[in-house]
Design a protein around this nucleic acid. Structure first.
Lengths: 126, 126
DNA sequence: TCATCATTTCAAATTTTTTTGAAATATTAT
DNA sequence: ATAATATTTCAAAAAAATTTGAAATGATGA
């Protein structure tokens, strides 16, 4: 087969910069693919408005689904869908209280929210 | 119209908890919607494998597109698409060097990557 | 000027994610 | 039991994001 094999032409200037770092192959090898996969999973869940509202809200106060519905403006099933995503990711958990399911952050969720909220993008422009 | 107006039934136990915090209305009012929108934007961009690889790589070394292609296993146009997303979000920038476009992190990008890499989910389970 | 190289852009095809609404569950109250 | 409430689940529809490949762009070198 061997189609598409045109090999990498790295510009000199960059080639040179990389030498100090062990060269291209070393840089390639050091990409933390596993960490990236993990980060991706959490980020995916946290990259949606409704779900962010939910965890921000839960970081203040545990709540039943009907409260989250009102807070997010979602229907039950929609809310439920997003809650399931957050739960899958280990960010929230539910406990039953009579007829209600009360959602709250897990310690993992709590640590993530704390971490992300701390971040303030002061440096936004160049 | 006034359809669907069944109003919130908050379970007593939770109602009580909330009193100390100014009650439901106060909790609702304090959801930082603007912050959430901002966070969402950045998260969306960082919630994709290829793009995470790119910024992790760029945090080590500035690179031209052909290097990123090789690193991510993407075609030019695919790479380009993801680069444009990262650029839009203000995370990376490009400078031309002859025939090459050399991409690197912006200060904003750098601060975000640093921040996110620091995070290690030790508390993952319950 | 013409060809080549590195890259972007565009529109169509594909894939992934979210929304919707109806039906299913589980718990409590009657 | 039966009905009511709070919620989930499911499958189909809709929307959003990604992939693909071909054509465009812009710099360089012959």
């Amino acid at each position: 087969m061997v189609v598409n094999m045109k090999k990498l032409e790295i510009p000199d200037e960059i080639e040179k910069e990389m030498r100090k770092k062990g060269g291209w192959s070393s840089i390639k090898k050091n990409l933390p693919l596993k960490e990236i996969k993990e980060v991706e999973k959490v980020m995916k869940v946290l990259s949606y408005d409704t779900r962010l509202r939910i965890i921000y809200a839960l970081s203040e106060q545990r709540m039943c689904v009907c409260m989250l519905m009102e807070l997010t403006g979602c229907s039950y099933s929609k809310c439920s869908y997003h809650l399931s995503k957050l739960k899958e990711a280990g960010l929230i958990k539910a406990t039953r209280k009579g007829n209600y399911l009360i959602y709250s952050l897990t310690p993992f969720g709590r640590s993530i929210v704390r971490h992300f909220r701390k971040y303030k993008p002061e440096v936004k422009n160049e």
